[in-house]
């Protein structure tokens, strides 16, 4: 039986390498687009929350609720509104991944110690300079954590998004479930698993490179 699976997997790659690579490419494309949009929305909403305290009490609870809703429900609730396809998949992925980026941006900016801000103002920085030179750079480590969580969420949910027609590795897994083909399940499962682990590793690496000062002795 075990040997059988390896054989089947070898056959799959021999015959369907092209399809497999297309699925990987689709998955990465959808994920990357969604991630970029989520980062832009998340950080700018975070900035708005920080700048206008009144908005914070409106924006944060909305995303807090959004964060609680099961990802599958968000994906499928868009079908009646937007139909199936890549566009609705991307919108769903963005909705799912904005909360971690946003929340971490807000917390990150808030956690910058007051005396550093005072120091910056005391030196004669304008409000804008304090934000760009002190608050944002010091919030970056937490923002990166948010981006990492968002990335994992996106790659995982992009797998489910195959159900609403966005293609990607999810297609391989769901085909495997439908046809009861273990080889497809294992190939799909391992590929997505490796993707998320690799992606979070890369983000951690970038984080460490940019935030070198945090890891010095």
């Amino acid at each position: 039986m075990d040997n059988n699976i390896w054989l089947q997997m070898k056959d799959y790659f021999a015959e369907n390498m092209g399809d497999f690579l297309i699925a990987v490419k689709e998955h990465l494309e959808v994920s990357l687009i969604a991630l970029l949009i989520a980062i832009i929305i998340g950080i700018s909403c975070g900035y708005v929350c920080f700048k206008y305290k009144k908005m914070e009490s409106k924006i944060i609870p909305f995303f807090q609720v959004l964060r609680v809703i099961p990802s599958l429900a968000i994906l499928l609730l868009l079908i009646p509104i937007m139909g199936t396809g890549i566009k609705s998949a991307i919108i769903a992925l963005v909705l799912l991944s904005v909360p971690p980026v946003l929340m971490n941006t807000v917390v990150g900016i808030k956690e910058v110690p007051g005396f550093l801000i005072e120091s910056a103002y005391g030196m004669g920085m304008t409000e804008r300079q304090v934000f760009w030179k002190v608050q944002l750079p010091l919030a970056l480590p937490l923002i990166f954590t948010g981006i990492k969580i968002a990335t994992i969420e996106i790659i995982a949910s992009a797998t489910l998004a195959a159900k609403i027609g966005s293609g990607g590795i999810g297609e391989i897994i769901f085909t495997g479930l439908g046809l009861n083909r273990t080889d497809l399940l294992v190939i799909g499962g391992i590929t997505v698993g490796l993707m998320t682990i690799l992606a979070s590793f890369i983000i951690e690496l970038i984080n460490r490179m940019l935030m070198r000062y945090k890891y010095l002795k």
């Binding site: 110690p113 550093l116 005072e118 120091s119 005391g122 030196m123 004669g124 002190v134 750079p137 000062y213």
Partner: peptide, 17 residues
Amino acid sequence: LRRKIGYVIQQIGLFPH
């Protein structure tokens, strides 16, 4: 005004980054 005045605080406030 502040740019013409030096300011030092107890917590020092060097920017860690």
